[in-house]
Write a protein that binds this DNA or RNA. Sequence first.
RNA 1: GCGCCCGUAGCUCAGCUGGAUAGAGCGUUGGCCUCCGAAGCCAAAGGUCCCGCGUUCGAAUCGCGGCGGGCGCACCA
Length: 557
Amino acid sequence: MKQTLTEILLQALRRAKDKGELKLETQPTITLDTPKDKNHGDLATTMALAMAKAEGKPPRKVAETILANIQDEEGIIAKTEIAGPGFINFFLKQDRWRKTLFDIDDQGHEFGFKDIGKGEKVQVEFVSANPTGPLHVGHGRGAAVGDALANLLAAVGYDVQREFYINDAGRQVKLLARSVYSRYRQMHGKDEPFPEDGYHGTYINEISASASTSASVGLEYIDRSFEESERAFAEYSKDQMLADIKKDLEDFGVRFDVWFSEKSLLADGSVKKSIEELKERGFAYEQDGALWLKSTAFGDDKDRVIIKKDGEYTYLATDIAYHRNKLARGFSQLVNIWGADHHGYIPRVQAVIQAFGHPKDSLHVILIQLVAILRHGQPVPMSKRAGTFVTLRDVVADVGADAARYIFLTRKTDSHLDFDLDIAKEQSRENPVYYVQYAHARISSIFRETESRGIKIPARETVQIDLLDLEEEQNLIKALARFPEMIEEAALAYEPHRLTFYLQDLAGTLHNYYYKHRVIDAENPAKTGARLFLMKQIRIVIQSALKILGVAAPEKM
RNA sequence: GCGCCCGUAGCUCAGCUGGAUAGAGCGUUGGCCUCCGAAGCCAAAGGUCCCGCGUUCGAAUCGCGGCGGGCGCACCA
């Protein structure tokens, strides 16, 4: 709809220029917005205001010229007007809007899913939690956003891969092993101090206990030193944690295509190789006995250490190899979803990307602000080390995966999120997710009713959509017509939260209609048919949007 | 000290690639079930869009400077 009108406007400009009525030294961009106020038309443009200065004419004059040159061959425009300082408002013919219903009927769940990506490969890396403890709510937010974003990008034609990067090589895993080892020894009556920085959660005890009966650890290490035991405990503990993490994510409805091991980069020599390549490219140098990345060449505050004086790699070293590996896999766009506390790391990694000869913006980092958990109105202090944190599993058990996902997605990622457990639990029926799901269930309920009465939803060949002439019906149709552009904008902006707001708006429009008018009118089969046809298309769009968010569309609640 | 994010209704937040009278949910007040699902609808009250200056025909939106809150500034990961 918007596209058609944009075409018409472009032609009008061309015509005005040919006739010498407009100078058009620079091609103006055509912006069309849906006005907040319905009295301002279905679509409005401010282009005349923007062009006024360059044309040297008052905006209203420019608007008049544009309008005078419009040729509406298809006949979609019902009325135009120039308002205020020079807005051009377009009122479109109702039957044109109604055709949207046929589009949805034809395309089904493909409706609104343009092929912007053209099959380009895109990777979304998210969660990537250290396998040293259970996932907490912050990870849940990242998981919800990452998964929805991946769905969204797939919906607009990208070939999307979901990846989880496993930090299984560093000190954290060693500390995990050490913690489990200590509890294990204590469990078997040995006098073993617990490491000062060890992980304190009860899950450590559980792993220690299960390790004792496992095939790979068993009772063999009760009297062995940590040095002798480390490998077995590290492997066992990490595997247990990863299995847990995978389970939590699956229960949350999130699945990854690739689980990428940091350790594998060390094992197969790619860390060494990547560093060599950086040296060859002139972006790594030695100083003070350490090896540095020349990240200042790309705008970082200072250069960063890759290999420490003692010969150990820093975290950056494996990240260099990891991002080189990603780039080599042929993605046109890399999206990393990180906790906001890692924001200082962005210039470094973007420097790496550029050092390997790729444009800076081939990596897009989305920062997720931290989630504060409130219980009884008070913030719950969270520390992984101290073992006090609210796990994703707890939240899912409390409020359900759908509500949790939806809450995570009703805020843009830049915003801090207060997740009040009591409200999410006690007022769960007030939760926005139910409002949207209820709309879906309501339509489904109507269909159950018509089915029991033997009323059929008409096919598009027989339906009389011109009977949909109520204002509330127009509102619904226009909301549906907005879906494709909303999807496109959300995808290009990497902002899945826009879908939740769209859905709430659509659901509200439906609830309003439902209350005011009855879909089934036994006296008027033709009108009933048209309304059922409308309901059918609304249901399709709700389903599509909820599916992208990863939230269920229940037929009954 | 430097950097990033946030500051919009009592609360939690949308709106921010500049547009017309700033929105939603919750909460408050009042109304709506003989009728397809009341997990719903309608209405009312509620605002210095943190402050100041600037750019602009036009600023919640852009720029600069403050203030307040969060986070980060390692040869940790």
